[in-house]
Design a binder for these strands. Sequence first.
DNA 1: AAACCGGGGCG
DNA 2: CGCCCAGGTTT
Length: 369
Amino acid sequence: MQENLAGTSKAIWADGRRALIEWYRVNHRALPWREKPHPYAVWLCEIIMQQTRIEQGLKYWHTFMNTWADVHALASAPLDEVLKAWQGLGYYSRARNLHRAAQTIAFERDGVFPRSATEWKTMPGVGPYTAAAIASICYNEPVAAVDGNVLRVISRYVDIKDPIDRPIGRKQVDTFTAQWIHPKEAGTHNQAVMELGALVCKPKSPLCPECPLESTCINAQPALGTTPIPPIKMGKTKVKTVNLIFNVVTNGTHVWMRKRPAKGIWGGLWEFPTQELSLGSELPEQPPSEAKILPTAIRSRSQWGEPFEHILSHRRLRCRFVVWHIESEPILDQGQWLSWQEAEAKARPRAIDRCWERLEKSCLTLDNL
DNA sequence: AAACCGGGGCG
DNA sequence: CGCCCAGGTTT
């Protein structure tokens, strides 16, 4: 593959690069951080957009920019408020790392952003892709930003036969892009490859006839709807099924909630006390025994919510909540009483939010208890 | 090298 | 229902 970069093919890749950048200037989507790239806006955007579609992340980016206009404001905000603004986006460690990096930049670097990709990589939450993206977009440092789009586009373009989700295929993409990156317009070039992947070189049914790289692409398809072409991928880790019972303990005005530990799934978010049922067991038809969850409750009564499913990338959650109306304070391991209004203001996982919606629908919150 | 870590959208 | 998304961190 490296030898393809030498000799005659080198001129071909250069032609493709020129055509690609020209295509980008005409066809790129207008995104707010593209007009005048500022490190804060670009960094924030890159963190939010990790494993996230632009359309989904865009409103979060606006919320963050409007709420915390610069790195000092973000660094001074309570982490809980940052997590609340992040609620619903997923991968919550991104929010915690974003906040930590903001504090480093604001308090230890006096507000001075890193400049090189190498320097950016020392920030929590900033890996090889994000560091290259920021350094190239903001400073035109000639480093290749390789994301999911780039892996797909390049593996097709230079016909990589090894799985790109394994080190062997990944290395070949890195080797090519490192030499292909435009020396003077790295930011435009990187964004052009990604934009091409999003708009033209799509995972299924790529639009080869519209592609600026068609004439130099080894895998270009003559017509639409033809045989799928690389990337070759190995694989998907198996999804495990877990049964969860969310215990909504309330005395009418307040609800018992607890904050999850900072690391692990849904780190730092608030939840109802949750029981994980043993693997393979069915979701029970009857509420769990009162003694197990509310050892000291007096005169409680319970109501089932209807079962629902919540899908994560690596888990299939079969969920059900049970509402415990109690008249005395429960003794639980951790957590605290929150008014429904206070609880509403806490950052919650989507699965807990699903319970919330159903509780509201059954008029169980606030008024109608 | 593989697992973990969310949530949404689309064919 | 499987696949993918402007990936990084931990084991």
